[in-house]
Design a binder for these strands. Structure first.
Lengths: 188, 188
DNA sequence: ATGGTGATGACATCAGATGTCATCGGCACC
DNA sequence: GGTGCCGATGACATCTGATGTCATCACCAT
């Protein structure tokens, strides 16, 4: 697709992340990013919704994979088991890019604007998961609360992973989900 | 405190909400709000962090009330029961200002920027609750996931309340928490 | 009355975001 | 191999949110 130098989008993405890590998100202007990539400000905004968008590319695809995994789970599985299988896929994907994922997480934690965007992303995944669970036959409100709560558990595991980078994220997700079951379980 | 016309902050708040409802959040400029209140743009930003802040004043106080309620719950109560008591307080407070709360919710749902801010607010409450639960002696990670998951349930109830304005929010919170216990309970 | 204090106005500036139009390269089609 | 269309980019303009700076004014204590 590149008419001049190829891979416009990729160049912008790499330039942005490099500058964000170097001098911080707030201190980096879109003009700097564009110049660093040999392009113009206007072109940056043709490829990304806003300055934050750069750090969340690929999340839509991951969301799709989670949704497909849950949808493909055996119909006999209860909601939690099907959902857990989807979350494990996501955790494994992040684990494979550990250093990159941790670096992005650090950036996001250091910048409220980015944290907002991250929360929107998680909420979007939760909504999608809830829809998939509904389609599997679950009651809508129960599907929503299950999806939201399990995504919350995923976030806690993700956060814990940031504090213990040598642990394995999929394992942490399992542990936190167990803790959730124990604490809010109806046997309490 | 008012040197010229009194209640600067209140006038700005009312002007902002009026204009947001009249012509939408995005279509309203800070200059319009300030002019409508007989003040200047600069003064608006002296009283509010940003354009969105106006719609979330009072939430800090509500957060404090929730935290205090949980902290004051009998030490023998399990995490979920103590947390539920705090959430019920919040639900009752919102129920008392039903029309106002619903109007704000509609505005927030119509504007992604505001949704982001709402999620930050919920996350902040969840963090605070997790800290309180930790202080009560719960294991930290279990406290975090319990707080996050129960706040997620609260959000689902709040959302459902928007779709069924005649239901009582505290009752809905109870119902959704029951659904959560049933679905993620360790007896599954 | 008088000087201090804190809130406000007036002005300037910067960055994010968006619209508009010209331009340039590649591609299909003739 | 020319010709013209289409999509991506550059150049320019503009709007608005946000922030810094400084003067000014009312109120208050003394």
């Amino acid at each position: 697709m590149g008419r001049w130098e190829p891979d416009t989008r990729g160049r912008l993405e790499r330039a942005a992340i490099e500058l964000y890590l170097e001098q911080g998100f707030d201190q980096t202007t879109v003009a700097q990013i564009a110049k660093h990539a040999g392009l113009t400000t206007r072109t940056f905004f043709r490829h990304f919704l806003d300055k934050r968008d750069v750090l969340f590319v690929g999340m839509d695809e991951l969301k799709e994979r989670v949704a497909n995994t849950i949808a493909a789970a055996p119909a006999a599985w209860p909601m939690v088991k099907a959902t857990a299988s989807g979350l494990t896929i996501a955790a494994a994907a992040l684990q494979m890019r550990r250093d990159e994922a941790q670096a992005r997480r650090s950036l996001i934690r250091a910048t409220p604007e980015l944290r907002e965007r991250e929360l929107i992303m998680f909420a979007s995944v939760a909504e999608t998961v809830a829809t998939v669970l509904s389609d599997r036959g679950a009651a809508e409100r129960a599907a929503r609360v299950t999806a939201q709560a399990m995504l919350a558990a995923f976030q806690v595991a993700f956060e814990y992973w940031g504090e213990h980078p040598d642990r394995e994220l999929p394992q942490l997700v399992d542990e936190v989900l167990d803790e959730l079951a124990e604490s809010v379980g109806s046997d309490d």
